[in-house]
Amino acid sequence: MKSATPSNGHMPQHMALEREFTMRFTSTPRGARLARRLVSHRLNDWGHPYATSVNETLTLITSELTANAVRHGHIPGRDFHVQLTLTDDIFRIEVTDTCAEKRPPASPSAADALSESGRGMLLVAALADDWGVSPRPAAPGKTVWAQLHVRTKGHPLTHRVAPEPTDVDLLLTTASLLRDDVGSRPEDASHGGRRQ
């Protein structure tokens, strides 16, 4: 975590809100996939096309945060909530679930190379300019948020240090998995979303 979370867990009030997208999703892998796709569509609508670094970065961050909400924050019968905001050239994605007990570590550690999980928050920390966790206001649970600073033309403002080669491989693998969802390719549509 790069900075302290504001006491209310939300954006400071002095910033002018330019755009906002908010929706509740079922706490299932399908709900997480839908959240990721809708965030990508919304960014495209806001002038950050699908192939831009802003859209791809925020979509990947959303994917990791929503997957964690489903995997680690799932309580049967409870949904998770996604909020995407653009304020003063800062995109902020918030994913709120109802499980207060399982919180991501303040500074994620490197996962074992053979482990099949444990890299999500490493990706978020590597891609976001800032991220954190805050208690859910007025109810049990937590909000995990990430911010990305952008120029008006859609490019990141900050200079990022290039990730280690193993991190690049992980990012490329994760990005290819996001593009290979069942039903996302034209050839899958003719089979009702099922591969043969």
Rank of each mutant, 00 (worst) to 15 (best):
143 T>M: 06
112 D>Y: 04
180 D>S: 12
179 R>I: 14
131 W>H: 11
50 Y>P: 03
162 A>G: 01
106 A>W: 11
55 N>P: 05
117 S>C: 03
25 F>H: 04
93 I>P: 01
108 P>W: 03
133 V>T: 15
155 H>S: 11
41 H>T: 15
100 A>F: 09
140 P>D: 15
19 R>M: 13
54 V>P: 10
182 V>K: 12
93 I>Q: 02
111 A>R: 11
122 L>M: 08
42 R>M: 14
118 G>V: 01
193 G>L: 03
191 H>E: 07
36 R>Q: 15
61 I>D: 00
128 A>L: 06
109 S>W: 03
16 A>H: 13
7 S>D: 15
95 V>R: 05
17 L>S: 04
195 R>C: 04
130 D>C: 13
171 L>W: 08
68 N>D: 10
11 M>L: 14
16 A>Q: 15
95 V>I: 01
110 A>G: 07
120 G>L: 01
60 L>R: 05
103 R>D: 00
37 R>E: 12
105 P>K: 07
21 F>A: 10
22 T>Q: 09
82 V>A: 05
159 H>F: 08
36 R>C: 12
99 C>A: 10
100 A>G: 14
7 S>K: 13
92 R>K: 09
57 T>D: 07
135 P>C: 12
50 Y>R: 13
21 F>G: 05
175 A>K: 04
69 A>Q: 01
163 P>R: 00
148 L>I: 02
12 P>W: 13
148 L>A: 02
72 H>A: 06
148 L>E: 01
85 T>A: 11
168 V>H: 05
31 G>Y: 02
39 V>C: 05
191 H>C: 03
71 R>H: 06
10 H>C: 09
148 L>P: 13
168 V>G: 00
60 L>K: 05
77 G>F: 08
2 K>W: 03
193 G>A: 06
76 P>I: 07
178 L>Y: 02
3 S>R: 01
118 G>M: 06
5 T>E: 05
132 G>E: 10
